[in-house]
């Protein structure tokens, strides 16, 4: 079933924490854990996006990050990275596999 709800990343992280049985910790710890995991997942995905950008586009991409809107950055990534959805999904799957040791 395709996952395209607006909060996929938060749900992904929540599911990881639940799968490890960590959701019964103190509320503040769980909030921090979610924030940390979300940061880490985002870092992985960002690294994957950057790694799959054609080298000749990287310099322009950097300028875009300084000057452009969120939509322009997203649109640039979609236009210039072939199979972006699969790349992101693979990165999430790898992270999940490592975290859950599956």
């Amino acid at each position: 079933m395709p996952q395209n709800n607006s909060n996929s990343l938060n749900e992904f992280v929540k599911d990881l924490i639940r799968s490890r049985g960590l959701d019964n910790l103190d509320y503040e710890i769980v909030v921090q854990l979610k924030a940390d995991l979300r940061d880490r997942v985002e870092s992985r995905v960002n690294a994957a996006i950057l790694a799959n950008l054609p080298p000749e586009k990287v310099e322009y991409f950097e300028k875009l990050l300084d000057q452009s809107s969120t939509e322009e950055v997203q649109s640039f990534c979609r236009r210039n990275i072939y199979g972006l959805d699969e790349i992101i999904a693979n990165e999430l799957a790898k992270f999940r596999a490592t975290y859950l040791n599956v």
Partner: peptide, 20 residues
């Protein structure tokens, strides 16, 4: 810089239509 632009990339993840 990408990290300081989280909305752009978080939305890309949220929009992915591939099953994880």
């Amino acid at each position: 810089k990408m990290r300081h632009n989280p909305l752009a990339f978080r939305k890309l993840v949220n929009m992915t239509s591939v099953v994880v």
